[in-house]
């Protein structure tokens, strides 16, 4: 028996998310606790990678804040994640689109996927 999985099933609550992959534009609604107050912050950007599997999986979101690129790594099953909203499905050829880091402006656009 896989005891690691037993532990993870017991202590990590698996939330259900909409399907998203690298290249998609998402908005992460992230809970922030300030003292006793709780508020929700939104972080919108392009998913540049999904990493790991099972309960320890993470994903990285990149956004342009002014002229600077900002990347944030979220644990997929973090209790602080309220929800993940998919704004756009992007058409990309690789699972980890690190090349986006070197591109700015019109070059950094991702073609939208048509279903």
């Amino acid at each position: 028996m896989d005891y690691l999985k037993v532990v993870e099933d017991k202590f990590v609550e698996k939330q259900e998310f909409v399907k998203f992959s690298s290249g998609d534009t998402v908005t992460v609604h992230y809970k922030i606790v300030e003292g006793t107050k709780e508020r929700i912050q939104q972080f919108r950007g392009v998913v540049i990678q999904r990493k790991g599997e099972g309960h320890t999986a993470t994903f990285t979101v990149r956004k342009m804040s002014g002229a600077y690129g900002v990347e944030r790594i979220f644990p997929l099953y973090s209790p602080f994640i309220d929800k993940v909203e998919v704004n756009k499905h992007g058409k990309v050829r690789r699972a980890r689109i690190y090349y986006l880091r070197g591109l700015t402006g019109k070059k950094a656009r991702i073609q939208e996927k048509r279903f």
Partner: peptide, 21 residues
């Protein structure tokens, strides 16, 4: 030693831990 994983604490912190039988 069985391996390592991570769990979330009551405050929501991601804590690395070792699973030991």
């Amino acid at each position: 030693k069985l391996g390592m994983t991570s769990i979330f604490s009551a405050e929501g912190k991601n804590i690395p831990c070792t699973v030991v039988e």
